[in-house]
Amino acid sequence: MKILVPVKRVIDYNVKPRVKADGSGVDLANVKMSMNPFDEIAVEEAIRLKEAGAAEEVIAVSIGPAKAQETLRTALAMGADRAILVETDAEVEPLAVAKILKAIAEAEEPGIVMLGKQAIDDDSNQTGQMLAALMGRPQGTFASKVAIDGDHVSVTREVDGGLETVKLALPAIVTTDLRLNEPRYASLPNIMKAKKKPLDTKTPDDFGVDVAPRLKTTHVGEPPVRQAGEIVPDVDTLVAKLKSLGVA
């Protein structure tokens, strides 16, 4: 079985995004970029499934600018076997990403497509579910545990009320949540080895997918600022204030 792992190049998790003064977006010039953290978890899980003998090959794919190659090399250094870059400078929405991934999945026939549940830039949380819909396959979203059992996969999902387990017929789409695993750091020898692993470059046109956006962003602004209140000197004052506010 192959596992296909889509990865996205996004602003680094530790960088505080700055909104551009003209309201056109977030300033990404000279900002550190990294692999989307949820995608790192997806790469790790795919590699663990391979190490456990449940999969033969892990293929990383990224849709984005030429620099997304770096993100793919990170996935290769972690242990993915080969990579596909679908190169475009356009901002590709989840629906178009899902259409491109569907075309790749139809060619590669993976048993599982393992994705991060959301990207930390647009916070859409859509791509996996959309891919599953387009392919007519089951989806195990927000996974905290993945167990392959013959021609099925059991996925434990992080839902509002606790942990839900569903059983999906393979091939299936799985999206990862935080607790699924802790991604490994790539070792230096593996980083060197990754440079020699195959990386194919394609374009959205190769798959006949129109990436024109359906949503137009008309403005990007700062979130409303909440006014700081007062610092109270001691617990007695705090308790008295809470009682006078009627909340305790």
């Binding site: 137009k216 008309t218 990007v220 602004g221 409303p224």
Partner: peptide
């Protein structure tokens, strides 16, 4: 978007 660091208006 961006974990609430920015608010986008979309159409």
């Amino acid at each position: 978007i961006y974990a609430g660091n920015a608010i986008a208006t979309v159409e």
